[in-house]
Nucleic acid binder design. Structure first.
Length: 484
RNA sequence: GGCGCGAUAGCAAAGCGGUUAUGCACCGGAUUGCAAAUCCGUAGAGCCCAGUUCGACUCUGGGUCGCGCCUCCA
């Protein structure tokens, strides 16, 4: 039984889908005017993990992650670059896909773009106007009348009075109430045609929150199961989404709200405004993408996650241990464990596809049961990963190919450990580093020295390679190597 | 100021009212020509103060510190 921490209830709750065996999930994605940073990586990886686990649990999942391709910052950036917003956003959408793919993030079922749903948004504003919740202000903007919506504040736990008390310097506007927010922004002089759409309230463009309400309803219905996003979206974005959707449709919008914690740098939130962010592609130049994914999944999704090279190095070391356990006795060596020769009958009991479509998990086996219990407990990936390490220990101890296969299959549910172990461990040559041929030549030379009992020379070669970042391991099957 | 979250061993990070988390690092042993990897074992924890309890890292109250939202932000 799956339990999910529901922000709406501020508690873990048993997950009950609206429709049996189906889950409809919406996650707030990127505003595409720049490269994704690690905070974005966390959202993508965390909800990819959720998506995978729901599917592994047998649900038929429809996953929507939107793309915001119209917004003040996009308009500003396009103007700075002297390019159209379309070329700008398309460029960063492509970059986002590259980053997501590298991190092993599966594509959502739908990736709607705001600009493709303008009619649905306008329809929603009209509905809100009819319901007495929207009004056109003197400046031409159409605003949401927050005080007319009863449940305002139920997600973020804020009351209108609290919000009023914490009000910042007030910006001059024609809102009836300072807390009202814009549904439809009127077009301003000098704005490009491509950021203006016709409407009964005059030319303009959608406010920030409207897109998600409109696209969620369009693709998942007026009432769906899960809505996710970063913790910073809880207020005002998600609160306003609820006001819009429930105000327009008169029914519950979302059953379970999930918010992931921030990525931090030096104990501070990584954010654009603070300027302390690292882009995904920047980090991937230095660290293997799977290490980054593992680093994210090693913490609970709701906890803060501190980023530093030291933490990534640590994650790399840990992932190396798992991959090392995956190295099976090579059939070519003539050494195979008894277990490896056993027919994989038990492994096929419950066919659940792993990330790479690899082997299936034997869910009756004790490690898998612990793994499942951890994942069902609000997606407790740190605990699930701990099970992976216990299983690695088991595989190493028993030299069991079956245990190694189970390890790989279970990790596959998290989108980990699906590569060839040797490929991961050896990585690829870094700039200025030794290439594989050079390494193998050195290994040959060392083997020759060992045969001649010239251990001083053998050790010299090994030491030289180590200094070049290459670790040698002499095994019964011969000498293997990996990049440190 | 309002609302909320957190504080676990050297670092990272979970569960749990009483019995080994886990990874890295460290120490001892096995193994190895020497290593590495692996295995076995030791050591090391729960911000402070009260309370509840036979027993609290785990529950309750208070305090301290850190973080977040209240403004664009994943």
């Amino acid at each position: 039984m799956l339990k999910i921490h529901n922000t709406l209830a501020r508690d873990k709750q048993e997950f009950k889908p609206i429709e049996a065996n189906k889950v409809r999930m919406y996650v707030c994605g990127m505003t595409v005017y720049d490269y994704c940073h690690l905070g974005h990586a966390r959202v993508m990886v965390v909800f990819d993990m959720v998506y995978r686990w729901l599917k592994s649990s047998g649900y038929d999942v429809t996953y929507v992650r939107n793309i915001t391709d119209i917004d003040d910052k996009i308009i500003k950036r396009a103007a700075e670059n002297k390019e159209s917003i379309h070329t700008l956003t398309q460029r960063f959408i492509d970059a986002m896909h590259e980053d997501a793919d590298a991190l092993g993030v599966q594509r959502p079922d739908h990736e709607p773009r705001a600009t493709q749903f303008i009619p649905q948004m306008l329809q929603m504003v009209e509905q809100l106007e009819q319901n007495g919740l929207a009004y056109k202000a003197a400046d031409g903007d159409v605003n949401y009348a927050v005080r007319k919506f009863d449940g305002y504040g139920k997600l973020s736990g804020k009351s209108l009075e609290d919000l009023r008390a914490g009000e910042r310097v007030e910006v001059a506007s024609d809102k009836n109430d300072p807390l009202d927010f814009v549904l439809w922004k009127h077009a301003k002089a000098g704005e490009a045609e491509e950021v203006q759409w016709e409407s009964k309230w005059g030319k303009g463009r959608p406010g920030w929150h409207l897109e998600c309400s409109a696209m969620g309803s369009e693709l998942l219905g007026n009432h769906f199961d899960i809505h996710g996003g970063g913790a910073d979206l809880q207020f005002p974005h998600h609160e306003n989404e609820i006001a819009q959707s429930e105000g327009a449709h008169g029914c519950q919008y979302v059953n379970y709200w999930m918010h992931n914690g921030f990525v931090r740098v030096d104990n501070e939130k990584m954010s654009k405004s603070l300027g302390n962010f690292f882009t995904i592609r920047e980090v991937l130049k230095k660290y293997d993408a799977e290490v980054v994914r593992f680093f994210i999944l090693r913490a609970h999704y709701r906890s803060p996650l501190n980023y530093s090279d030291h933490h990534l190095d640590d994650a790399k070391g840990a992932l190396t241990r798992l991959y090392t356990a995956l190295k099976l006795p090579s059939p070519a060596s003539g050494i195979t464990s008894d277990l490896a020769a056993l027919p994989p009958s038990r492994m096929a009991s419950s066919s659940i596809r792993g990330a790479g479509g690899e082997g299936s998990v034997d869910w009756n086996e004790p490690y898998a049961q612990r793994f499942k219990a951890a994942m069902d407990d609000d997606f407790n990936t740190p605990e699930a990963v701990a099970v992976l390490f216990d299983l690695a220990n088991e595989a190493n101890r028993s030299q069991s190919a079956e245990a190694a296969a189970q390890l790989k299959a279970l990790a596959g549910v998290l989108g980990l450990l699906q590569r060839d172990a040797q490929e991961f461990l050896q990585g690829s040559a870094t700039a200025g580093g030794l290439d594989d041929a050079a390494i193998n030549a050195q290994i040959e030379a060392r083997i020759a020295a060992k045969k001649a009992k010239d251990f001083a020379e053998a050790d010299r070669i090994r030491k030289a390679l180590l200094e070049a970042g290459i670790v040698l391991e002499d095994t019964a099957q011969g000498t293997s190597w990996r990049r440190a």
